[in-house]
């Protein structure tokens, strides 16, 4: 994969981590790919960014990135949020790789809280930053217990939790970090993406890697793997819908952020995926020009 080389930041290896560490992380990734949805413990390193700010995703990215990769980093779907800028800069600085904001052009995409709207292709890798890798954590706090529950495929407690939602509210009231079953075996958290994005995980042609830095876990969904969101026959899984469309590109099918525009409570809705919105707005303009001609 990557050849060690000195880059702009003196005294640090290519992509910050030393080659031994990368090798250890790649082994964990290979195991994770071989057992889809299973959380592989790894010797997570301390990164120069705080825990909870993407150190897991960064360690995965650092371990798979090569000199000819093009990296895209998004946070909340946007390339220009401060933490996305900060992480993109980190790799531009320590690996000297090309970066891009275009989903289509990226070979690696590190993300926090969103899956890009544009369908990903085989050959691309989507790397999720994961704060809490354990889907059962808020049902059972102890890792020693949850590991047993996974081993025994004892997932009834989660179904009960979802059922309690149905009984109380008439729906499953989980709106993000919505649990899924991977390859019919392991329950997995897709990280705190909105459940709107869950269907995109199913059968995705791109490789999906998940890194939780301070919990020291890596897991993966290989390309074209079945990923099913939990539900009931009579209460099927459903995603968020908006009555509004994007105020910039007019999209009525993407995930929209609500932006409050003044202190009188006026608001507008815009695509959370900035690259998708930009692409659509551009093609709208081209369309309009063509029509004029």
């Amino acid at each position: 994969m990557s050849t060690p080389q000195m880059t702009q930041v003196e005294g640090y290896n290519f992509a910050y981590l030393d080659e031994q560490t990368k090798r250890m992380i790649r082994r964990a990734i290979l195991k994770a790919v071989a057992i889809p949805g299973y959380q592989v413990p790894f010797g997570g390193r301390e990164m120069p960014l705080p825990h909870g700010w993407g150190t897991g995703g960064m360690q995965v990215t650092a371990s798979v990135i090569g000199t000819d990769d093009r990296l895209k980093v998004i946070d909340q779907g946007a390339d220009d949020t401060t933490n996305a800028v900060s992480i993109r800069r980190f790799f531009a600085k320590t690996a000297g790789v090309e970066t891009t904001e275009k989903t289509a052009d990226a070979t690696l995409i590190q993300t926090r809280h969103r899956v890009p709207e544009r369908p990903l292709q085989n050959g691309q890798i989507l790397i999720y930053q994961v704060p809490v890798p354990e889907p059962l954590r808020f049902i059972e706090a102890r890792d020693s217990e949850t590991r047993k529950m996974h081993a025994l495929r004892e997932y009834g407690a989660m179904q009960v939790k979802l059922y309690e939602d149905v009984a109380r509210f008439g729906h499953i009231a989980t709106s993000y970090d919505y649990p899924v079953m991977v390859n019919g075996r392991y329950m997995m958290t897709p990280s705190p993406i909105p459940k709107f994005d869950n269907p995109k995980l199913n059968g995705m042609p791109a490789l999906q890697l998940f890194g939780a830095g301070f919990e020291k876990r890596i897991y993966a969904v290989p390309p074209y793997t079945e990923v099913q969101s939990l539900d009931f026959d009579d209460y099927p899984f459903e995603v968020q819908q908006w009555e509004e469309s994007c105020a910039i590109c007019g999209s009525d099918h993407s995930f929209l952020d609500e932006v409050i525009t003044d202190d009188a409570g006026s608001r507008m809705f815009v695509c959370s995926d900035t690259d998708y919105c930009r692409e659509r707005a551009q093609s709208n303009r081209e369309q309009a020009q063509e029509n004029e001609q």
């Binding site: 301390e46 705080p50 825990h51 909870g52 700010w53 150190t55 946070d75 909340q76 779907g77 949020t81 933490n83 926090r112 809280h113 969103r114 704060p131 509210f169 729906h171 009231a173 709106s175 993000y176 970090d177 705190p192 993406i193 909105p194 459940k195 709107f196 301070f214 968020q240 908006w242 995930f255 929209l256 952020d257 609500e258 959370s272």
Partner: peptide, 29 residues
């Protein structure tokens, strides 16, 4: 303290996608 501080301070990062999902859910309920 490094982990604890990181995780608590990560609340300063944007969460508006998740918050939007919660808004939609609460409004509907």
């Amino acid at each position: 303290c490094v982990s604890a501080n990181g995780f608590v301070s990560h609340l300063k990062l944007p969460h508006y996608v998740d918050f939007q999902s919660e808004l939609e859910m609460i409004r509907r309920l």
